[in-house]
Simulated scan of single mutants.
Amino acid sequence: MHGVKRTRQSPEAIQARKQRERAKIDEHRALAAQVLSLKAANDWGADALALTTRLLATNPEFYTVWNYRRYILLRGVFPASSPAQVNTLLNDDLAMTTSALRQHPKVYWIWNHRRWCLENIPDGPGDGAEKLAWKRASWARELYVVEKMLDADPRNFLAWDYRRYVLASSPDRRPESTELDYTTRKIESNFSNFSAWHQRSKVLASLWAKGEHTGVAVKDAEFEFIKQAMYVDPYDQSAWLYHRWLVGAGEDREVLEREIAVIEELREVEPDSKWCLDSLVHYKRLLIKHDPENAEALGKECLGMLSELERIDTFRGQRYRDLAAGIREG
């Protein structure tokens, strides 16, 4: 890097570093061989569990070892433990994976093990709400953990997927309107957060299916919200893909014409935005079924924009030529 003074290492220092790296690799290979040997021998003991902890700390993507760890817990440790002890053991594993996720937030197998832990928390003592006490505490903490992960990386798609799992599985369901507010905050802090837009579409689709959060005013407000994102960064795909989802199959002609006008207005300011052009082609082709008398004129407009797209977005030139051929044939 510019301005950073480089320190030249001596041949001896380089050799020493290489020896340390080789030693770490040899140690890892020996530990992996030992763990896999215990697995082949169906060893479900506490010593084997401790070895999987050591191995996973250095290689959290070793999914075979995660599977082996779960077998040890299910077949060796849990049967000899009380429900309170099982709960403590699972909480220990949740703490272990929390630490691992700080270093490896996009390793699927860590998130997968957390799911398994939550699904195996035993019922507490007593009746009714008391029996659910341990589970409620764990699930509530889990939502807090995943929110912290999303604070660190708001676009971590594995964390978003896990969040959906937690919200759907928690014994204490929270209103979907609360989750809608959460996506609003995440999107307003970064309009290019595709995962937050995707989550928003899931929440809205669920609410609409239940007949909630409906009405023209609600959808108009959503279009206004997405318009802000499109105008802030007309070159980012996240908002455009959400806009296409919101428009849907183009059954509402009034919405189609209104949104076409919005995008054409933006195009005047950003003539080289491929997403403006691509969306206009898409929506004007949808408009043809509502306005067959102007099909030829709309088709010509689309062909002109596809020609522009070929110039702007050369990597997808064949796609635009194929679309143009379909318009000419249709």
Rank of each mutant, 00 (worst) to 15 (best):
G3A: 08
G3W: 03
T7W: 01
S10Y: 02
P11Y: 05
A13I: 05
I14A: 11
R20H: 12
E21S: 11
A33Y: 01
Q34G: 00
V35C: 08
L36F: 07
A41Y: 00
N42T: 04
D47V: 08
L49F: 12
L49V: 05
A50M: 09
A50Q: 11
T52F: 01
T52R: 07
L55A: 12
L55D: 01
T58E: 14
P60T: 06
E61M: 09
E61P: 00
F62G: 00
T64G: 02
V65W: 03
N67Y: 12
R70M: 11
Y71I: 05
G76H: 03
A80E: 13
T88V: 10
L90T: 10
L94D: 05
A95Q: 11
M96D: 11
T97C: 13
T98N: 14
L101M: 14
H104P: 01
V107S: 00
W111D: 03
R114H: 08
E119H: 01
D123K: 12
L132D: 10
L132V: 00
K135I: 07
R136Q: 09
E142H: 08
L143N: 11
V146T: 10
L150Y: 05
A152Y: 06
A152D: 13
A152R: 14
D153W: 08
R155N: 09
D161S: 15
Y162I: 06
Y162E: 08
Y162L: 10
R163N: 05
R164M: 10
Y165F: 11
Y165T: 04
L167I: 15
P171H: 04
D172I: 15
R173A: 15
P175D: 06
E176V: 13
E179H: 12
D181R: 14
D181Y: 07
E188A: 10
S189A: 15
F191G: 15
A196E: 04
H198E: 08
A205S: 15
A205P: 01
A209H: 09
K210C: 12
G215I: 02
A217Y: 00
A217D: 09
V218P: 01
K219C: 09
K219G: 02
A221C: 03
E222K: 10
I226C: 14
K227C: 13
A229K: 08
M230V: 14
P234R: 10
P234F: 00
Q237M: 11
S238E: 02
S238L: 03
L246Y: 03
V247S: 05
G248E: 01
A249W: 00
G250D: 04
R253I: 02
R253H: 02
R253G: 02
R253M: 04
V255C: 05
R258K: 14
A261N: 04
V262K: 07
I263W: 02
E264M: 13
E264K: 15
R267T: 15
E270T: 14
K274Y: 02
L277F: 05
L280H: 08
V281H: 02
V281A: 04
Y283H: 06
K284M: 11
L287E: 02
I288R: 11
H290W: 04
P292D: 07
E293Q: 14
G299I: 05
G299S: 14
K300Y: 06
K300F: 06
E301G: 15
C302G: 06
M305Q: 12
S307E: 13
S307T: 12
L309S: 08
E310D: 04
T314C: 09
R316I: 07
G317A: 09
Y320F: 08
R321G: 07
R321V: 09
D322R: 13
A324M: 03
G326Y: 01
R328N: 01
R328S: 11
